[in-house]
Simulated assay, not measured.
Amino acid sequence: MPAVPAVPGLPDASYDHDGQLTKREVRAITLARLAPVPGELLWDVGAGAGSVAIEWMRAHPECRAVAVEDRPERARRITANAAALGVPALAVVTGPAPAVLATLEGPPDAVFVGGGLTAPGMIATCWDALRPGGRLVANTVTVEGERTVLEAHGRLGGDLARIAVDRAAPLGALTTWRPQIPVLQWTATKPA
């Protein structure tokens, strides 16, 4: 029997992380926008805990991904998360983006920028590397990141969405809603 694709949005507790993690609901939306296809390659830039690359690979056994992370301790954590979640073939590259992107297998079919979005040349390098018809998704929670995304959207087009999630939490003996940090998401498809 063929393997059943995994649905994105694993619980956050599935990942060992230091707080740099695309949270469950945002991760599911991000994977939907990246639209994994069997045999396609994803670059997960500023991978943090590697959750987007891992869930991209879990979508189908033929999906491939490279997680790029500047911090060695996070890169080690990504490797451990990938092994624990059934995708030990995830390639992890340690180094600063966008400089290290020139060393990666490519061209990618999709690029996710989850960290380092404001680094000079990050969007241009990712966009230039992307194959025609490929998808770029960038998430940000900072004002500086929003400025970068809005500028890129003005040049390259695409879609903008603000994702806001509230989670139920105790308030004394009752329950209230605790808002999470809203995420601005930009998605663009490179013209074919």
Results as ranks from 00 to 15, higher is better:
P2K: 14
A6Q: 14
A6D: 14
A6R: 15
V7S: 12
L10S: 01
L10T: 02
D16C: 04
D18R: 12
G19S: 08
G19A: 06
Q20P: 00
L21M: 07
L21K: 02
R24Y: 02
E25C: 00
V26R: 05
V26Q: 11
T30P: 00
L31E: 04
A32G: 01
L34C: 03
V37F: 12
P38N: 08
G39W: 05
E40L: 08
E40D: 13
L42Q: 07
W43H: 05
D44E: 11
G50E: 00
G50D: 02
G50W: 01
A53C: 06
W56N: 06
A59P: 00
E62K: 12
R64I: 09
V68Y: 03
E73L: 11
E73H: 13
R74N: 12
A75L: 09
A84W: 02
A84R: 14
V87C: 02
A89P: 02
A89N: 05
A91T: 15
A91G: 13
V92Q: 01
T94C: 13
P96D: 15
A97Y: 06
P98Q: 03
A102E: 15
G106R: 00
P107C: 00
P107K: 10
P108L: 05
D109A: 09
V111F: 01
V111H: 07
G115Y: 05
G115L: 04
L117C: 10
T118G: 05
A119W: 11
G121E: 10
G121V: 07
I123R: 07
T125Y: 01
W127P: 09
R131Y: 04
L136P: 01
L136S: 07
L136D: 06
L136R: 05
V137F: 03
V137S: 02
V141S: 07
V141F: 08
V141L: 13
E144Q: 14
G145E: 08
R147E: 15
T148M: 07
T148W: 09
V149W: 12
L150P: 05
L150F: 11
G157E: 07
G157L: 03
G158E: 10
G158T: 07
G158W: 04
D159W: 07
R162K: 13
R162M: 09
A164C: 08
A164E: 14
D166P: 00
D166K: 10
A168M: 11
A169Q: 14
A169W: 13
G172W: 05
G172D: 08
A173E: 15
A173P: 01
Q180K: 13
W186P: 02
T189F: 00
K190L: 01
